[in-house]
Design a protein around this nucleic acid. Structure first.
Lengths: 242, 242
DNA sequence: GCAAAAGTGTTCGAAATACACCCATGT
DNA sequence: ACATGGGTGTATTTCGAACACTTTTGC
């Protein structure tokens, strides 16, 4: 789709924005105006910004966040990525079908954000912007379901080098919280004793004085990442777990 | 740069074509006509082909190979990737400086090819196409040195999931040959006993009856990958070595 | 027979796995 | 007091690391 500012033709960015809440991975989706159709936040790249900057901009507009962890994971460049006619028909009350490119190449990014700091915000073309559970969200327009799937695969594969804990969990956090994050991403459960031993042995965590209060149960310890140690472990690719 | 066929504007593909010969990783480079300037093979994406197909086409044109292992590894999308003026000046006898896009986004691919099956072939704009040792090749035009560096990092990181042996080594091969391939990619040497034990324990290799002859030394056994087993191990990401 | 590279086995320590009970807290 | 989730130690097994000598071959 086209806009006033000068754009790079036929090139878009789509973002899989991931957050973690209630022990679940969530993805931020948009519902198009006066429809029940959902899709990923995305948009064109401007002539005056880098591709990464375009992704950052789109992300900032939907989440209100400034500094964000973004990772390019794939270019979607097939000649036919989805039914153009279908999309034109479904969104014709929003966009003149004539303005759609016959073909667009999309660069896929995943973003890891702190759920608690996000204020989901729809734009001029959408009525609603909200989090969905990654295991249960609607069928999306375009090839966006495929994109989410590949984003998750990329994330899993790159787990050892991605600052996952850092970006998805607000500090301070407890070890069970961190464990559930890993479990959710990897899709399997882990032994808490082994998880703790492994995590603590990496030497990247600092245990705080205070504990988390509130539940009707034993108060867990709070932890923070030690930034330098954390960075070092990431570079080594040491963060794969069990 | 522009051509007769309809192109996607401002979008190019660049290929880091890797081969293995004389126990060294090599990269295929082009020398521009009447210059001493080298760069990676690359080019625009046509409207009628997927991005992957564009990379495949470029690769086929330079190597003569049909089925090739190609892996997208990065989009180079900065607003300013290199000095446009410098390139226009250096290549002005080949291209009218006016035809250059002010900005182009490039999708980086690395390709793993069988060195022995490649016939390097220059195109209309280049005088020479040849292999260079990956540890010692000229400064390239554009941001191509950076691209090679990132391609190698991506390859190293993805080693466990990439069909490296499969594509870079002609079958049948010997275990020492395979070991030197891994050593070259990872940039460190390994113990031959440990390497063999690990490789053979994966159950993806078939030892052949015949041995390789020719050197003034003991004849090594020849091996072949067992395709189904090899595929399965790749999916699991089990191929990381020592 | 000699030079060059290939083949091979064992020991040791580290890390991964499996497993179950008690503790702290709020209601 | 009880229900809920958090914290912790040990034994076993597996895997990676280190290490050196003998064999084959062509010249």
């Amino acid at each position: 789709m086209k806009e006033a500012t000068a754009l790079i033709p036929q090139l878009t960015v789509d973002c899989i924005i991931l957050g973690f809440h209630d022990n679940q991975l969530r993805v931020l989706l948009l519902r198009w105006k006066d429809t029940s159709f959902w899709s990923l936040p995305g948009g064109p790249v401007r002539q005056t910004e880098s591709v990464d900057a375009a992704a950052t901009r789109i992300l900032r507009e939907r989440t209100g966040l400034g500094a964000i962890y973004l990772q390019q994971f794939r270019v979607f460049g097939d000649e036919v990525r989805y039914s153009l006619e279908e999309v034109q028909e479904k969104l014709k009350h929003i966009f003149d079908p004539a303005i759609w490119y016959k073909r667009a190449i999309s660069i896929g990014y995943y973003a890891l954000v702190d759920y608690s700091k996000v204020t989901p915000l729809p734009d001029a073309y959408t009525d609603e912007c909200r989090w969905w559970d990654i295991r249960d969200f609607p069928t999306l327009l375009f090839d966006h379901n495929h994109m989410v799937k590949l984003a998750l695969e990329a994330l899993r594969q790159q787990l050892s080098w991605q600052p996952v804990g850092n970006n998805l969990l607000p500090e301070p956090f407890t070890l069970p919280e961190l464990q559930r994050l890993y479990e959710t991403i990897l899709g399997r459960s882990m032994d808490p004793r082994n998880f703790q031993r492994k995590m603590l042995s990496l030497g990247i965590l600092e245990r705080l004085e205070t504990k988390r209060r509130g539940g009707a149960f034993r108060s867990p310890y709070l932890y923070r990442f030690i930034p330098e140690k954390y960075e070092a472990a990431l570079k080594e690719g040491n963060l794969m777990i069990l």
